[in-house]
């Protein structure tokens, strides 16, 4: 079989696993807007890197890691503004910058449009290596700070009050989140990567008991969605992002149905 096909499968598995794992924290921390904001920051970063002739990998990675980490400065208990409202405004800014950048672009925009929808044309051994390294870094982080992350998920107030190194772990988490989103963006697509983060994790939270089970299920659901979507896209020449997102939504619906049929998972 076509060796490219295997690369597509590998890319799908890595993208799905890293987005599924990341989603456990994005969904658990009730940060859906952070996910949307960072993915759009990554998109703006990618487009301006093209415009300025910067490295298509490091440009967006640096932009989204820095913007993401700066979000740690938003302290819900200290600001009078709902953090989700603040994020919605920042998100609009990033979307504005993205489309401004696209307007400024000369000549063909098809490659950049691919960033919005996701395309397996971006699957190359180099990009697979990059998403692999980012995924590995996030796994190491999640293992190393597992006990702190659990407290953060449960309650940032408890974490802060009882001396968990909350700000440090949270900032590091956001920076890694920016990196994961930036490197997976060309494959999954800026408009849809957010669903690959939320749906698998939301499905896992529906049906699992215990943190470890959530992590395993969400990662698995991410892999199934992305590999399924990528393979579908390969055979039928459809946008990868759309296929992946539809697959993850179907999984989520199945999880909800399963919970309803099987009764409470607890």
């Amino acid at each position: 079989m076509d060796p490219f096909f295997y690369l597509v499968i590998l890319a799908g598995a890595i993208a799905g696993a890293s987005c599924g794992l990341l989603g456990v924290y994005i969904v658990g921390l009730r940060l859906p807007f952070v996910g949307i904001f960072i993915s759009h920051a990554a998109m703006a970063g990618t487009i301006f890197s093209y415009l300025l002739g910067l490295s298509p990998i490091w440009g967006p990675v640096v932009v989204s890691a820095v913007t993401a980490a700066s979000l740690a400065a938003i302290r819900p208990e200290r600001s009078r503004m709902d953090p989700n409202v603040a994020l919605a405004i920042l998100f609009s800014l990033m979307l504005g910058l993205t489309f401004l950048g696209m307007g400024l672009m000369q000549g063909s925009r098809s490659e950049v449009l691919g960033l919005l929808w996701g395309s397996i044309l971006f699957v190359q051994s180099k990009s697979v290596f990059v998403i692999g390294v980012a995924a590995a870094a996030f796994v190491v982080f999640a293992l190393a700070f597992n006990k702190e992350l659990k407290v953060l998920l449960f309650s940032r107030t408890i974490a802060a009050a009882t001396g968990v190194h909350e700000t440090f772990v949270y900032s590091l988490f956001l920076a890694l989140c920016g990196i994961i989103l930036a490197v997976n963006l060309p494959l999954v697509g800026g408009l849809m990567i957010f669903s690959l983060i939320t749906s698998p994790a939301a499905a896992a939270y529906q049906i699992c008991r215990g943190h470890r089970a959530v992590v395993a299920a969400s990662t698995g659901f991410g892999v199934i969605s992305a590999v399924g979507g990528f393979v579908f896209s390969y055979y039928f020449n459809l946008p990868t992002g759309a296929c992946t997102v539809l697959a993850s939504t179907v999984l989520f619906a199945l999880a909800v149905a399963w919970r309803a049929l099987a009764g409470k998972a607890d």
């Binding site: 658990g28 006990k147 702190e148 407290v151 998920l153 449960f154 408890i158 939270y205 215990g210 607890d266």
Partner: peptide
Amino acid sequence: EYNAELPFTLREVVAMGRTSIRPLL
């Protein structure tokens, strides 16, 4: 101020009390 809807087990929640008194990593 806490996410009661997450599927943490009782043991996991109580174990969170040991987090800050053990070093990072």
